[in-house]
């Protein structure tokens, strides 16, 4: 019976992972040992069956829909990144000018809060170049895509609540 080390050597020979010297030794073994030869043949056949027969899978989404999701995620992440950078820049500025800025910022916050309060949640978000689309709630966003082939426009509503 072949030991495990030899089994792995046979496999490594099949996969072209042995040095020329080792490869020669394994070749000799398969020539004189029927068990080794049989195992080598099994591994070889399995390898060739797999290599030529991977199942073909297609993404079950239209080109337009799939791309619109990717584009939307790219835009969302770029926006988040930009706001993180702004925050980082703001925090370093704060560290240097913390004391004198504190009063100013507090004042600014008050003004912003006072100005924003009456507007409520009526924030307009333009998400589509070709059509007018609005998502007034802060916890939702939307994007639209068109499938000319299917004659349809889909407005996808995303809820950011986890």
């Amino acid at each position: 019976m072949i030991n495990h080390e030899t089994e792995l050597k046979l496999q490594a020979y099949l996969d072209g992972e042995l040095s020329p010297g080792e490869a020669k030794a394994v070749e000799d073994l398969t020539n004189r040992d029927a068990d080794a030869w049989a195992l080598f043949e099994e591994l070889k056949l399995t390898k060739s069956l797999l290599a030529e027969n991977e199942l073909e899978v297609r993404l079950p989404e239209s080109r337009g829909f799939y791309w619109s999701k990717i584009q939307r995620q790219i835009e969302r992440e770029e926006k988040e990144q930009a706001s993180e950078q702004t925050e980082a820049a703001a925090s370093s500025w704060w560290l240097r000018f913390l004391a004198p800025a504190a009063a100013l910022v507090a004042l600014a916050v008050l003004v912003v809060v006072a100005l924003r309060a009456p507007k409520g949640a009526e924030t307009l978000v333009a998400l589509d170049d070709s059509h007018e689309i609005e998502t007034p709630l802060e916890e939702t966003s939307s994007f639209s895509f068109q499938s000319e082939a299917a004659g349809m426009t889909v407005v996808w509503v995303d809820s950011h609540r986890e």
Partner: peptide
């Protein structure tokens, strides 16, 4: 205008020709 639980979720303006579909969707 699409309303969910009384709140307006999304508003869309466009043409809808005979045979065409305008679909609002969400997970």
């Amino acid at each position: 205008k699409l309303y969910g639980k009384g709140k307006m979720v999304v508003k869309k303006t466009q043409k809808i020709k005979p045979g065409e579909l305008l679909i609002f969707a969400g997970d």
